[in-house]
Design a binder for these strands. Structure first.
Lengths: 359, 359
DNA sequence: CTGTTAGCGCGTTCAC
DNA sequence: GTGAACGCGCTAACAG
């Protein structure tokens, strides 16, 4: 009955399917007990140099790698974090994701990603599903309603939010200071002399959108009128909403994000509207592309990778690794205005329609 | 010694950590055996309507979700695919990733992502690591040497490549017809009257780069000179290499990809070089941004999501799901030239230096 | 220091 | 149509 894996391999060699070696195969190969192999690999208990070498050789020879499912089953932890993002294609989230991944890697954690395709309704399920696989979940800019989030926080052991604080900050979160950033943009535009500006709204349910709205309300007044234009969070949304923004007669357009501004810029170009000559344009986030675009976008710098890293740290300190259960912290990341080429003083005349604007 | 999970739960209730319910908890709740619960959930064997309802109720009440680790252990499969990409921030890979994810989802498979940060040396380990967690791995545009790939293919049960065919097509792969695409670009430029063109090279080890080179060799001749300029695969690389491209005196610049062309465009603008008036520019891949840029980029359309989907299908048909082991297929995706605004006939005079070009 | 034993949560045999 | 028992790969408890 010692017909072991090595034998099988020979027989199935034609199929070239190398069956994964188990710890028992390694133990047999090294002529030790499975426990010794485990000890060498996990380093929990000392093992004599001789045996250790034999085990290491066997591991290399067989190409053995422990099965994480079995490890997870036993330890009750998977050594993985889940990350839920609205859209990996959005450079903003791609960066946040990288931040989490890099930080997690340092602690030897794997990252699992779920893309909800900007469908707020899918977030809850995605997080729940990820939580089956991972020890915790990082929720990026969730659009789900407050009470859904609260319920989720009870079902998912280690939940961390990015750019969303739950009711009373029950859920640990790292958020950008959108209010300050948006205020900076408003101040900048006002100083340039703009009095009528349009704002391209992001997803209504986004927490960050509401924070921006607070800043907008605070900044607006008789000498600084803000026209709200429904838009969205993608370049395509920006492209679509650009005409409406122009129609407000504003001399400056504030986009929800750089990614949105990208689409706006393209549409403006199609319409023959020059930025910043005819109209000023601002973004938010400072994605890498913004410096490559022409004109270079005036925006608010957010350290996106850092956001991801901070989220990881929140996860780690919430007891996911050691036992120090420190729930409910909310950390705020700064947002700094970056003035570039897409903003300038308004032209003498108000431009109610793009076509006439050019004429 | 029957101090079970339910007991523990009561004690740690203060921490508000809801421990995941097990199938046994559900069975107790529904007053049936664990086996019955399993049968209801997997639907493998018929169960009486009465019991089925009781089980479903219990599942909902407890919020029970089967532990995938345990399932994986038992079934010897995890119901997950790994995807290794050089850079998730690259819109190209983001799209391919989405393609895999969407297709996998339909078969109820989860997607695990590893980002190698464009470090070819990290690919091997990343794939190996992913293969511990997943039933197979999709390797996107791997830069690793041929023999490393061959070795990897033996260690990873279900390996599929995107944009890379291994020696003799041993590894199932879906590849873009780079050669045809590149040939199309060359023909287009030639027809416009360009005789001296620069090519911004991608990563030397990329299979797709070698395919492009074949097309370039075939197209080049006394009346179509191609100047090779080392570059890379990111926008930043393109930005850096733009000057060198101009210095060749070419009237058209072919970028490795749209993503690279983006950086080139930005640099050209800084230099006051107008596209396509002073110099024509082409990309490859047709990422969404390319239509938003000004000028809109002439490029080669590649259905990126489809690439991902086809990779998934290759994985699925390689016996990862059923047993139909159909190894070594290589499928080729078409590449279609999209003529937009960044290419035009060359200006009358050759432009050896950007500054003089404008004057 | 090392080997043996038990069991993590689940699905799938077997008996009934 | 249902329940009891076994084992997936691994490691933490015990024995020696």
């Amino acid at each position: 009955m010692w017909c072991n894996a090595a034998m099988d391999r020979v027989r199935t060699d034609a199929g070239a399917r190398p069956p994964r070696a188990t710890i028992i195969d390694v133990a047999r190969e090294a002529a030790v007990s499975p426990a010794t192999v485990s000890r060498v690999l996990t380093g929990t208990k000392p093992v004599s140099a001789d045996l250790e070498q034999r085990v290491r050789d066997a591991v290399n020879r067989l190409g053995y790698r422990p099965n994480p499912a079995a490890q997870g089953l036993l330890r009750g932890a998977t050594h993985a974090v889940g990350v839920v993002v609205p859209d990996v294609g959005n450079p903003y989230f791609a960066e946040v994701l990288k931040g989490v991944t890099n930080a997690a890697e340092e602690s030897d954690f794997r990252t699992l990603v779920a893309d909800t395709g900007e469908k707020g309704g899918a977030e809850h399920d995605a997080a729940l599903e990820l939580s089956r696989w991972a020890d915790g979940v990082v929720l990026c800019s969730p659009r789900m309603p407050q009470r859904e989030l609260a319920k989720l926080a009870q079902a998912v052991p280690h939940l961390v939010c990015v750019n969303r604080v739950g009711r009373g900050g029950q859920v640990p979160a790292v958020v950008v200071d959108f209010e300050a950033g948006m205020a900076g943009i408003c101040r900048h535009l006002r100083e340039l002399g703009h009095r009528r500006v349009a704002y391209l709204r992001g997803p209504a349910r986004a927490w960050s959108e509401r924070a921006r709205q607070r800043a907008l309300r605070a900044a607006s007044g008789p000498d600084f009128e803000v026209f709200q234009v429904p838009c969205g969070s993608s370049s395509v949304d920006g492209h679509r909403a650009a005409d409406a923004a122009l129609a407000t007669g504003a001399t400056a357009v504030m986009a929800f994000s750089d990614y949105v501004a990208l689409g706006v810029l393209a549409r403006f170009d199609e319409l023959g509207v020059s930025v910043p000559r005819d109209v000023s344009l601002t973004g938010f986030d400072d994605i890498a592309l913004s410096e490559l675009l022409r004109p270079r976008l005036t925006t608010v710098r957010v350290s996106k990778q850092d956001l991801g890293r901070r989220a990881w740290e929140l996860f780690a300190s919430s007891g996911a690794i050691d036992g120090a259960d420190e729930t409910g912290r909310v950390v705020t990341a700064s947002a700094e205005l970056i003035t570039r080429d897409s903003t300038a003083p308004p032209a003498g005349a108000i431009t109610p329609l793009p076509k006439t604007a050019k004429a």
